[in-house]
Design a protein around this nucleic acid. Structure first.
Length: 431
RNA sequence: GGAGAGGUGCAGGAGUGGUUGAACUGGACGGUCUCGAAAACCGUUGUGCCUGCAAGGGCACCGAGGGUUCGAAUCCCUCCCUCUCCGCCA
């Protein structure tokens, strides 16, 4: 949620920035309710003061019938205004929740993901002296991916991932965990990218896979409820990313600045309904209802939030470089970063089997948009209290796994193991 | 799932209808003392909202939401969470 004070001070700007994201919001209606609400608050508070004063008087001695009558009158008046106030606040909150975070000024303005800016292309595409195959062709031949049987059990967009592909998955995850918890590597990444940040390593987390409605909604990630699985008998939603269940971890807390940054790297299975994507990416395991993912999440002060975002992208690049994959870094345009984001970067990785770069990573800088409703704050050294900023970013999901299969395939159908993963595979070099 | 206990400020912990934003203890911060530190002593130590140029004024908040009352941390209801025991269970 955005700060209402910003809307009061810069209504046109907020309207414009929302429009850049493709959001149609009615700022003037929002401000009108805000004004009415404030007027009402003033009235209610005057009455409450009267009530409090009267109660103070009645404390000593026995109250007269006249005084009691006055108290009763105040009570009904307050109750009446309170009802009205409550309704206005509900309405205001509903409108406020619809206002997206404002993109930072450097974020390119665009109407669709086609206007994302490719900032750079890194690494060499592999050359093949044979026709490279799709990961699903390879997966099927090697018995690594069985979607037909998964469909019997769970429906479309589920898979049995089997055999060496499971080992490769966990090798990749373990490699990611080792990088993110290694302070020396972080130090080097920070220095190489001219960042001015703490080198505090990430803390490994296995978070709850579900969150309650109130909590999930506060993260700003439940705006599209049709995209999220809901449990039938409990007030719980299946997470669509570890980010969604790590972000609310410090809800309602005032953190100490000395404890920041808090860097978490969570491993969880993510669930997505993928409503509206029927027919898209039906082959392979690029777009599934369920996938396992290693995800970064950081809590910082407002001062360091943007640098932290850059660090996460730098980490993603480091991981892909270590795997020897070719990728592009895309500065996402206003239409593609999503409501809660102030900025966002995608990493698209070369998939020779499909002859194109496909999104494998994303990095989100949310500023204080989540923490305002989650009420996660930080007390500075001078005693001031401010909202923390949050960042999240993919470390590894199933998509980089797909990239490994396609990039490291050989003519005989085998797949080489990237060098950095070999030690996690018992020294095996080929699968 | 059954039975019981409980949720109060940074922490522990008082407070069962009247100004209680909340005793007391500890922690933290500032000061005195000291070469420095410890000890001791003194002082400070909530958040949000409304209003105001400011100083200030006001309101709300004791898990959440309702209710009773002139008045609620305190009484009642619903929900959430935590703990203990039993049952079940990887």
């Amino acid at each position: 949620m955005i700060d209402i004070q910003i809307i009061r001070d810069n209504p046109e700007l907020v309207q414009t920035k929302a429009k850049q994201k493709g959001y149609d919001i009615d700022v003037s209606a929002l401000l009108k309710i805000d004004e009415q609400r404030r007027e009402l608050v003033g009235k209610v508070e005057v009455l409450r003061k009267e009530r409090n004063d009267l109660a103070g008087q009645l404390k000593q001695g026995k109250p007269s019938e006249e005084q009691l009558a006055k108290g009763r009158k105040l009570k009904t008046e307050i109750a009446k205004l309170d009802d009205k106030l409550g309704a206005q606040e509900t309405e205001l909150l509903a409108l406020l929740k619809k206002v997206p975070n404002m993109p930072l000024d450097y974020v390119p303005v665009g109407a669709s993901e086609d206007e994302n800016i490719i900032e750079k292309t890194v690494g060499e595409k592999p050359k093949f002296d044979f026709e490279p195959q799709n990961h699903w062709e390879i997966g099927q031949k090697r018995g690594w991916i069985d979607k037909e049987r998964a469909a019997k059990v769970a429906g479309a967009r589920f898979a049995y991932v089997k055999g060496d592909l499971v080992r490769l998955h966990f090798a990749m995850i373990q490699f990611g965990m080792d990088v993110l918890t290694n302070e020396d590597i972080l130090k080097k990444i920070i220095a190489d990218n001219n960042l001015n940040l703490s080198s505090k390593p990430f803390t490994l987390v296995m978070p709850p896979a579900v969150a309650r409605t109130e909590v999930y909604d506060a993260t700003g990630r439940l705006n599209k409820e049709e995209q999220t699985y809901k449990l039938a008998d409990d007030d719980l939603w299946l997470n669509a990313s570890a980010e969604h269940v790590m972000a609310p971890m410090y809800m309602g807390e005032i953190l100490s600045e000395a404890d920041l940054p808090i860097r978490l790297v969570g491993y969880t299975t993510a669930f997505r309904r993928e409503a509206g994507t029927y027919g898209k990416d039906m082959e392979g395991i690029l777009r599934m209802h369920q996938f396992d993912k290693l995800e970064m999440e950081s809590f910082t002060t407002g001062d360091t939030g943007l640098e932290e975002h850059k660090l996460m992208v730098a980490i993603q690049e480091y991981l892909m470089q270590q795997l020897g994959l070719s990728y592009q870094v895309l500065q996402k345009c206003t239409a593609d970063i999503g409501g809660p984001n102030a900025a966002g970067v995608d990493i698209n990785t070369w998939l020779p089997g499909q002859n194109k770069y496909r999104e494998t990573h994303t990095a989100d800088y949310i500023t204080d948009y989540q923490t305002r409703r989650m009420n996660t704050r930080v007390r500075g050294k001078n005693g001031s209290v401010e909202l923390t900023h949050t960042n999240d970013a993919t470390a590894f999901s199933q998509r980089p796994l797909v990239a490994i299969i396609e990039n490291y395939q050989q003519a005989d159908g085998t797949v080489r193991v990237p060098k950095v993963l070999q030690s996690y595979m018992g020294g095996r070099t080929v699968l």
